[in-house]
């Protein structure tokens, strides 16, 4: 048997609440085993217990109950030997140091000064190595922290919401850099509240909420469960949709609206990938994976207007997944 990279057993963490008397159960019984080479997303809203769990994996805090094993040893040992490293949430760089000095300083602590240039190059920091850390953008600061995390050549990388506060471009760039490291067989666990990050990057997703694991399954299953889009539009034949109808020239009048709705919904339902079609007043609501085809049909043949396409929210993903879990 191989030693698992990370093994959390019956993990609990309680804090005294800020108001004084009460107790906050930040982590309330987590069991999870992550094998070497796995890439796992911890997905959950703020306050779900993700950071507290990762803090225990890194040995920053001790569990109130339960055990943490990292590569078969204690988190502190694994960290101080450089087997585990992490990119922490935003903040936590020294002002007044340049990017290169920061890398040199941490390399000095790990006693690997020879790796400074290599790491700066791999994380794309060469151009900004003389910039002061406080003048770096959020994305650049996170890339710098990623560079620091790579210094000890860790087997396990822990990323705690590494892209929080980044814009879409910076986020894509960060994960691009990350992907290269992942291909080298590192074990990676990351916390995120972006569904897309879990989908794009992690073959396995652990859904955390209220300090408990709500679901732990391959991300592919998650994708089919929550990959649906919701398309809604106003069909012609009512007040709001009348303009659209005129342009189309279909000339549907009010009296025929009911039957034309039925015809329209049955045509939509016939599109491959549509799971559900329903009317809410004069709005047609379509759920399924074929959002493009449905939108095309609605805007051309059916003369619909005020089209909206929405992707599933984290909440709906949660709902879908937790429902799915209970059904098993």
């Amino acid at each position: 048997m191989n030693t698992p990279a990370i093994k959390l057993t019956d993990l609990h963490k309680e804090f005294a609440s800020r108001s004084g008397s009460g107790v906050v159960k930040a982590v309330d019984g987590i069991d999870v085993t992550i094998n070497a080479g796995e890439i796992v997303a911890f997905l959950g809203p703020n306050g779900a217990g993700k950071t507290t769990t990762l803090d225990m994996v890194l040995g920053f805090t001790e569990p109130t109950q339960g055990t943490v094993e990292v590569l078969g040893t204690s988190p502190r040992k694994a960290v101080s030997h450089g087997h585990v490293s992490a990119v922490l949430q935003t903040g936590g760089l020294l002002h007044g140091l340049t990017v290169e000095e920061t890398v040199k300083l941490i390399a000095g602590l790990h006693k690997v000064p020879e790796r400074v240039n290599d790491v700066i190059e791999r994380t794309g920091l060469t151009e900004i190595k003389d910039r002061k850390t406080q003048l770096c953008s959020g994305g650049e600061q996170q890339r710098l922290k990623f560079a620091l995390a790579l210094l000890p050549q860790p087997e396990i990388l822990v990323l705690d919401e590494p892209t929080a506060g980044m814009d879409a471009g910076a986020r894509r760039e960060f994960w691009g850099t990350m992907r290269q490291e992942a291909s080298q067989g590192k074990t990676i666990i990351f916390a995120t509240h972006y569904l897309e990050e879990a989908q794009e990057f992690a073959p396995r997703t652990v859904l955390v909420d209220g300090g408990k694991i709500r679901a732990d399954r391959p991300t592919d299953e998650l994708r089919t469960l929550v990959g649906d889009r919701v398309v809604s539009a106003t069909l012609p034949g009512s007040g709001a949709g009348a303009d659209g109808a005129d342009v189309d020239g279909a000339g549907v009048d009010g009296a025929d609206a009911g039957s034309s709705y039925t015809e329209a919904t049955s045509r939509i339902a016939a599109v491959d990938g549509v799971r559900e079609v329903r009317m809410e007043g004069d709005r047609v609501i379509v759920e399924g994976s074929a959002s493009d085809a449905v939108a095309r049909l609605l805007l051309t043949d059916l003369g619909a207007s005020e089209l909206e396409v929405s992707s599933p929210s984290l909440e709906s993903a949660f709902f879908a997944l937790t429902q799915g879990q209970e059904a098993h």
């Binding site: 890194l58 101080s80 903040g91 760089l93 941490i106 602590l109 790990h110 620091l148 000890p152």
Partner: peptide, 16 residues
């Protein structure tokens, strides 16, 4: 202050 503001956690990832 720097330790409180997150540098302490960064250092806790090193053998220091």
């Amino acid at each position: 202050i720097e330790r409180i503001q997150g540098w302490g956690r960064q250092l806790a990832l090193t053998p220091m």
